[in-house]
Nucleic acid binder design. Structure first.
Length: 109
DNA sequence: AGGTTGACATTAT
DNA sequence: CATAATGCCAACC
């Protein structure tokens, strides 16, 4: 039986799960890796269904390194807490040393 | 079956 | 160089 929508979303989940510990990536990077470079918005949309899955959505941020999606999390600063817990410095929803923790699947993979 | 929305990104002013 | 507006693709209602 089909649990849920098996499509672009699942692909996004797969990549999100591949994000190394203490590392972050941007929606556009994942989208590009999937071949949908212009579907960056879809990636974030897909994360909406990440709830209950093994997808570390807290490791996915926008191109600015800003935790734009923290609004969708359970708590208010939950996302930031998770990132800091992995060694990623986050101040005011903004990731510090983004260039250090940035992980591009298209490059690393 | 169609219209609107969306956790972004890019291009133009 | 900084800010603003539009575009994209696919899913959701």
């Amino acid at each position: 039986m089909k649990p849920e929508t098996l499509n672009f979303f699942d692909k996004v989940y797969e990549v999100a799960k591949l994000i190394p510990y203490g590392r972050v990536t941007s929606y556009g990077a994942i989208a590009k890796y999937l071949g949908a470079a212009r579907s960056a918005r879809m990636v974030g949309y897909a994360m909406n269904g990440s709830s209950g899955k093994d997808v570390p959505a807290h490791r996915v941020v926008n191109r600015k390194g800003l935790l734009t999606g923290k609004h969708h999390f359970d708590g208010t600063n939950l996302m930031q807490q998770l990132l800091e817990s992995e060694g990623v410095k986050v101040i005011e929803n903004q990731i510090q040393d983004l260039e250090k923790v940035y992980w591009d699947p298209s490059k690393e993979l």
